Structures are given as structure tokens and as C-alpha cells.
Amino acid sequence: MLARYVEIGLAVREAFRQPALREGFIARLKPHRRLIAGCVPAGIQAHGMLPERAPSHGLDEISDADLAQWLVDDGRLIYGEFTEQELDHYFEAVAPWLPLHGHFIDLGSGLGKVVLSAALALPGMRCTGVELLGYRNDMAQMRLAQMLAAGVAENPAAAARVAARVRLVHQDMFDANVSDASMVYIYSTCFAPMMDRLADKLARELPEGALVTTVTFPMAHPAFELVQQFAPPSVAWTSVYLYRRRSALDAGAPSAPSYLYEQDCAAWEYAVRAAFAAYDSSHGN
């Protein structure tokens, strides 16, 4: 997957960087702007993971289907997390709604900060992290081992109990089994293009009464009722939403729209052209 991601990403980035190719960049990406977190895909920006080499294909050689899939994959490779203080606020804020025992699942668990924090903050919960990228999951496993080693030095029995409750899985979140989840946590700030699909998965698979947390973007699906919204900065720098899976769908509730966050066409193009200018200025063009 990553090899194909790089191949297409190099073509997209080249079309962004080269003035002669920019009208093609706009024309190809405009129909798929609903899939972009921001105006320009994160992967082609300076903090992206693409190597500095020339592309083997032009953007005009990439099919629309492959380009759309690349944009989805690019959104899923963005990493974000709460600070330590924000996590403390979060667990304190949601505590009144959490059961004493159950299963906490972080979809898109990255380096494992939320899962490990949950294991310490929620002693009655099993805690699972699901992460798409193997290297991030490996780093999370290292963090877990370090935390447990420190715990063994102080209290071996307590460390063993934590170890028994934590699981870090290298897996696509859309393939994860959430059927016994009590709480699903999603740091969804970078997942705008996938919110509908995530909501649909959770609506189909979560048990009645299960809780879901999303960040920045609400989850507009009739299977879920909003329990609480935490406005910034009460818990975190952005809005935090807490939902509960309804016992049954309200027949009169509107269906979720196909795409919740499609950007206005003219505004998107204006922002992209501004990004072109900013790139040229920073590179002396």
C-alpha cells in the first residue's frame, strides 16, 4: 500500500510544485476536494512522508479512482493526539458516563498515548489500540514495554494487571472488531473525509449504549445521540463530542448526508492558489 501511496503522491506533489502543471492539479483534485483535510493534501507538504525524488508517472496518468483512494489514504496517515494535560481533562470529563468495567478502543491509536493513559485512568477497562501503520504500532509497543518495566520496579503485581488489560493491534480501523466496545475513542481532527464511513461502521457494529468520542468533527448519524459536547478549551484545544449508541433508530431521523465536509468549490480553489503562491515565495520562485 505504501509503495503505491508514494508513487501516486510523487505525481500529485510534482503537479503542485510545477507552475505549468498547476491547472491540471486543480482540475484533477477539485472533484475530490471532499476527501482532502484542508486545501492541499498533507502528504505533499513539507511534513509529509514522500521522498525527495522525481515521480515515475504524471498526474494525468493516474486514474480518478486511484487518485481518490490516495487522498483517503493520505488523510489516514496524518497523526494527531491530545497533550497529557488534555487527556487528564478528557478522562475526568467523560468519567460520569463510563461504566466501571468494559472495553475501551482507540481507533487510530498512533504511538499509544491514549491507550496507555486509559489503562491507568480506567482500571476496570480492557484497553485496545488499533493502528494502521506498523512503525507507529511498533513504537507504541515499545512505550508499553517501558511503562510496564517502570511499573514492575515499583509494583510487579499492579504492572501485571495493567499488562493483562492492554492490547495494541496493527490493523485497519475499518477491519477492527468493535462489537464488545463500551467506549470508542477517535481522534478525528484529521479524519473529516471518513466521518460518514466511520459513523456507519460504528452504527452497524456497536452494542446498544456504547459510547463514542470524536474530536473536532461531530458524528451526524441517527444511530447516535449526542450526550455531551465539550467546547474548547474546557477539555482540549478543539471541540470534543460524546455520543451514545441508541437502542433503536428513530424512523423520523434524517439520514446522514453522503459527505459532511465538502468544501465550497470557489473557496477551495482560492485556498489552493494561495498555497501555490506561498510555496513559490518560500522557494524563491
Rank of each mutant, 00 (worst) to 15 (best):
V72I: 15
L71R: 02
S258T: 14
A65P: 04
L198P: 01
G151L: 13
A236S: 10
D88G: 08
A15R: 10
M173I: 02
G9E: 06
Y185S: 00
A181C: 05
M173G: 03
S234M: 15
C39N: 14
R197D: 05
A54E: 15
V235N: 13
G108F: 12
V169Y: 12
E61S: 09
Q141I: 02
P123G: 08
C190F: 01
T238N: 08
H101R: 15
Q228I: 08
A68D: 02
G252T: 15
N155V: 06
A236H: 07
A121P: 05
F104G: 00
H101E: 06
E154K: 09
L206A: 03
A277L: 11
L10F: 08
A271M: 11
V114I: 10
A121C: 11
R165P: 02
M1T: 13
G110T: 08
A231C: 12
R28C: 02
V6K: 11
Q18G: 07
R34I: 13
S188I: 07
L21T: 04
G24E: 14
R4N: 10
R273V: 01
E23Y: 12
V6D: 07
R143M: 06
E154I: 05
V272W: 15
R273P: 02
P51N: 11
G102L: 03
I44D: 00
Y279I: 04
I62R: 07
E269S: 03
L35T: 06
D280T: 06
P232T: 05
A42E: 00
F104V: 00
I36E: 00
Y135R: 13
Y279N: 10
G134C: 11
Y243C: 02
R246L: 08
F224S: 09
P207G: 06
E86W: 04
P254M: 14
F191C: 07
H221M: 06
E84P: 10
A158P: 05
D106K: 01
D66L: 12
Q229G: 06
C127W: 00
T128W: 01
H57E: 11
D66W: 14
A223H: 09
W237I: 12
R34N: 10
A68W: 01
A277G: 11
V114Q: 12
A236E: 04
A236I: 08
A199C: 07
A277V: 14
Q263T: 10
H32G: 04
G43M: 09
L67F: 04
E205I: 00
A210N: 08
R246F: 05
